[in-house]
Simulated assay, not measured.
Amino acid sequence: MPTPDFILDLRRHIGHAPLVLPGVSMVVRDDAGRVLLGRRADTGRWALIGGIPEPGEQPAQAAVREVYEETAVRCAVERVLLVQALEPTHYPNGDVVQYTDIALLCRATGGEARVNDDESLEVGWFTPDALPPLTPFAHHRLALAREEGPTWFEPAEADQTLR
């Protein structure tokens, strides 16, 4: 995935130091209940569509933009599924990033699924009973999309003291 320009600018100042960045991941469903997935160019694995909001961009707008940029599918955001601080990611160049993922449930509203940029090798619609191999990250978000429950988050310990 290409690194956004604003992150490259930050890296010129801070080097490889850890960054905490927002991220969005989307469970995009069509009217038939299929899920939109992309096979990532960097790993070759099938995954949910995701990305990084630009400075000043709302997470829902970033989701709509990323889905279209990567798949040519138009979508509308329906609800927040999850907010989760992920484990730090260590990139081969030495950069360290900890993403705070905001997972969003989206409904496809138009467009034809196709590779629309250089981040994906393939894109496609999959029925829930015929998914390709996916990570626990994707399975957790897909499970939340099937439920009508509240937004998931890691609870704080009740007896946690502030220092």
Rank of each mutant, 00 (worst) to 15 (best):
H139C: 12
E69Q: 13
P4Q: 12
L144V: 09
G51A: 05
R107C: 04
E87T: 12
R141H: 08
R163P: 14
P53C: 06
L21M: 05
R34G: 01
T89K: 03
N93V: 09
H140G: 01
L8G: 00
L19A: 07
A47E: 15
E78S: 11
V24H: 01
F153E: 14
L82Y: 06
T100V: 15
A85Q: 12
V24Y: 04
T3G: 00
E122V: 03
G15M: 02
D118A: 15
L121K: 03
L121R: 12
F153Y: 13
D9K: 01
L81D: 03
Y99I: 07
C106G: 09
G94P: 02
L37R: 02
P53Y: 04
E69R: 12
I7G: 02
P4M: 09
V77Q: 06
L121V: 11
I52V: 15
W152K: 08
S25C: 04
P53D: 06
V73Y: 04
V115P: 08
D9S: 09
Y68K: 14
E69W: 03
P128Q: 10
V35E: 09
L162W: 10
L36G: 00
L19Y: 01
G33Q: 10
T71E: 05
E57D: 03
D31G: 12
Q84V: 13
W46I: 01
G38A: 14
P128V: 10
E66P: 05
H139E: 14
A62H: 13
R74E: 15
Q84I: 13
E87P: 08
P133Q: 15
P59L: 13
Q160Y: 14
V77S: 08
V67F: 09
S25K: 10
E70L: 02
R146W: 13
T43G: 09
A130S: 06
D95W: 15
R12C: 01
E54K: 05
G23V: 07
A138Y: 03
D31H: 07
L142H: 00
R45D: 14
L48A: 02
P53E: 04
G94Y: 05
E78I: 10
V35F: 08
G23A: 15
L134A: 11
H90Y: 14
P133C: 10
R12Y: 08
E66T: 12
D42C: 14
T161H: 12
H16V: 11
